[in-house]
Nucleic acid binder design. Structure first.
Lengths: 215, 215
DNA sequence: AGCTGCCGTGACCATGTGGTCACGAGAGAT
DNA sequence: ATCTCTCGTGACCACATGGTCACGGCAGCT
């Protein structure tokens, strides 16, 4: 979508523009985001922005593309976790999402913002890409879901649903205001999240399995 | 906040204005909402709207007031449920929220919209009012939380957290697109929700209690 | 009929928006 | 030195926004 001119720019300058756009869109949403502020932040002139991109929407879509690419990269299919229990996998996915939100806070906030604007045309596309990513990540899992472990009447999709709800609330509550830069005691807080998450996943696990999994 | 002029208007006209504002704000959020469209929808002229309300924000705050009043009324303290198990109460609260969202879809969407704009000044106020409502509703519950029922290391606040996450996802998934008017087979779908909700609450209950509660 | 006072009107204002375009700086070629 | 061509500039445009205000209609009084 961007013009060749843009793609021939030094990476640093491309980065400036993308970063400024990400921030502006993340903070204000699509409509309220101002191209004036973007060019100001990116230290370029108004005119050239619209030589690089056809219009505001084109810029937005490009930034969406970048964000999704980064997101997908955080879930490389080749090292999807092997597991003996689907809950290992659920935990791994959640931790990767959290790690992503800490390593790419701007992109994360950008995507979260989009998720709050369902009326916007790209909403469906972005959400599809995101769920597709984790679903592709779980492709092998689907086939291996152990039958008979769940209490009668329960389906794995219900389990996934409740886990997804919980982890979303978890992410929002614990990392709602992430700084732009990575925190210094990153690993320490990461470990705390790890433990806390275990508590909640264990609740659901005990709630859905026939017999209690040994701790 | 509105001028006496407005309050002396026939109720029907007041209703027109409030309804038009609710819809415009619910659909577009505060910033994107257009007073031009509001006066158009409400069939009044631009000038008089700003005689009734000092400015856009004042109108918005008034509408917020109306919405919150309606919400609070949906949780009358006098008939807070008596219970032998906090989960009865959790279920009752959730069902009332769902019922409210079906009986006042416009107001519900309006409040949901606000909940998606944390940067807006009224966000905190609205969220506080909402949580205060359910908390006041549960005042007696807090004192009566049965000790010793939870597995060691678990706290009730963790249980409430996970239930809140689950029920929010539940509401969003099942009633994301509610029509403006109440559905005709209202009670039937309400019963379905009832049953489905039981499944999820039961999962959490089994997950947090020491021994399984008899079904 | 004439006067008064209030309510509602919509053209109008300043401001900010997404987007344009005539201009100029400067590098390379001759 | 001059020409050319590309890239970047920022004043500028039409438009939509929240908000204003001189005006007119009209009910009630004298």
């Amino acid at each position: 979508m961007p013009s060749p001119q843009f793609l021939n720019l030094p990476m640093e300058k491309q980065g400036q523009i993308v970063q400024a756009s990400l921030r502006e869109f993340a903070e204000n949403g699509y409509d309220r985001a101002s191209t004036n502020r973007i060019v100001e932040q990116a230290r370029i002139s108004k005119g050239v922005l619209f030589k690089y991109f056809e219009d505001k929407e084109s810029l937005f879509l490009y930034v969406v593309e970048i964000a999704l690419k980064a997101y997908v990269n955080a879930f490389p299919a080749e090292d999807a976790p092997s597991f003996d229990d689907p809950f290992h996998w659920l935990k791994e996915v959640t931790m990767r999402k959290i790690r992503f939100s800490q390593e790419h806070p701007l992109i994360y906030r950008f995507l979260v913002r989009i998720a709050k604007e369902p009326e916007h045309p790209v909403y469906a596309k972005v959400m599809d890409a995101i769920t597709a990513t984790t679903q592709q990540y779980m492709a092998q899992v689907a086939a291996l879901l152990p039958p008979g472990k769940l209490r009668d009447g329960l389906r794995w999709e219900q389990v996934f649903f409740i886990v997804e709800c919980m982890t979303r609330g978890f992410r929002e509550a614990y990392i709602s205001q992430i700084p732009d830069a990575v925190d210094e005691n990153f690993e320490a807080s990461f470990q705390r999240l790890h433990d806390e998450l275990d508590v909640y996943l264990d609740i659901i696990k005990r709630g859905v399995y026939k017999e209690v999994h040994q701790q």
